[in-house]
Each structure stands twice: as structure tokens, then as C-alpha cells.
């Protein structure tokens, strides 16, 4: 009878310690793994796209820009492009990233709309979805005009 009690004790001790040790390891490991989720998104910086008055009304204009981005432990110079449209109420900057699965959309001059090459998403010049699978209109950048120059805010 006593022998069984001892065995139970060791069994409980082994299981308890096993659980405790696993927890002590799991907490830092879990936090480490979740670190990218828990990190606050940066404010992002403003990037100049040149003089604001060069964008005439009518159709979106493709503009390339590059900036230095924090990329984990390094800084990388990245090149991106955006579509700028002059509307009566001011300039709008569209991100070319399709809201479906992230392919890059292009401007189709003949049909006067944006086409995504991946799954056939189509957006009108205002970025609204006309056809295909995209769930949302094209994302717009925050914009500002300072000293005659157009700036967009990048992530």
C-alpha cells in the first residue's frame, strides 16, 4: 500500500515538473514567435512624388518612387510605384497592390481601367471594383501637398 503511494507521488512530481518546465520554456518561445504580431506598426514616412501640378486631370498617372525602408535588422532601398489621379477635389494616390491577393495591377489605356494580371480583377479609374474577385477598392495612400510637391505616406 505504501509503495503504491510513493509511486503515485513520483508520478505526480514527474508530470508536474514536466508541465512546469514546458511552461517556463513555452512563455519566452511563444513571445519570441509572436513578436512580429505584437510589434506596433510604424507611422511610416512621407515620400515625395515630385511637383503636384504635373498631374493633369483625366486618367491616373503611373509614378515610380523609391525610399529607404527598415527591413528587420537592415535598411533596404526599395522601388515602388503608385497611380495618381487628379480629381476636382484634389489628388488621389492609389496603391497598385490588388486587394484580392496582392498582385500588381496595371493601367489599361484602351479600356480605361485597372487590370490585375493574376485573377482578372478590374478596377475603374477611381479604384472601384468593376469585375473579378477583389473584395475592396484599391487602397489609397495618405497624401499631402507641401511647397507645390506631392507627398504620399508609405508604411
Amino acid at each position: 500500500m505504501e509503495e503504491i503511494g510513493r509511486r503515485d507521488f513520483f508520478g505526480l512530481l514527474a508530470k508536474g515538473l514536466g508541465g512546469l518546465i514546458s511552461t517556463l520554456l513555452a512563455v519566452p518561445l511563444g513571445g519570441y514567435l509572436l513578436s512580429p504580431v505584437l510589434r506596433k506598426a510604424g507611422e511610416g514616412g512621407w515620400v515625395s512624388l515630385g511637383r503636384a501640378d504635373k498631374f493633369a486631370p483625366g486618367r491616373p498617372v503611373r509614378v515610380e518612387y523609391s525610399y529607404e525602408r527598415e527591413d528587420g535588422w537592415m535598411k533596404t532601398k526599395v522601388s515602388r510605384y503608385a497611380f495618381i489621379l487628379r480629381r476636382p477635389d484634389g489628388l488621389v494616390a492609389f496603391s497598385p497592390v490588388c486587394t484580392h491577393l496582392g498582385c500588381s495591377v496595371g493601367w489599361n489605356e484602351e479600356q480605361k481601367n485597372f487590370h490585375c494580371p493574376c485573377h482578372g480583377g478590374v478596377y475603374d479609374p477611381e479604384g472601384k471594383v468593376l469585375a473579378g474577385p477583389p473584395p475592396k477598392p484599391l487602397t489609397q495612400f495618405d497624401t499631402k501637398v507641401e511647397e507645390g510637391k506631392l507627398f504620399i505616406r508609405v508604411a
Binding site: F10, A14, L24
Partner: peptide, 21 residues
């Protein structure tokens, strides 16, 4: 081996992980 010696091993493992932390 289980549970008596296993429990001893785990006692040592516990002190090791505590020291490491």
C-alpha cells in the same frame, strides 16, 4: 525508470532551466 528516476531527472532539469532563465 518511470516515475522515480524520471522525477529525479526532471528535478535537475527544473533547476537547470531556472538557472538558465
Amino acid at each position: 525508470f518511470y516515475p522515480k528516476q524520471a522525477a529525479r531527472d526532471l528535478v535537475i532539469a527544473f533547476f537547470l532551466i531556472a538557472a538558465l532563465l
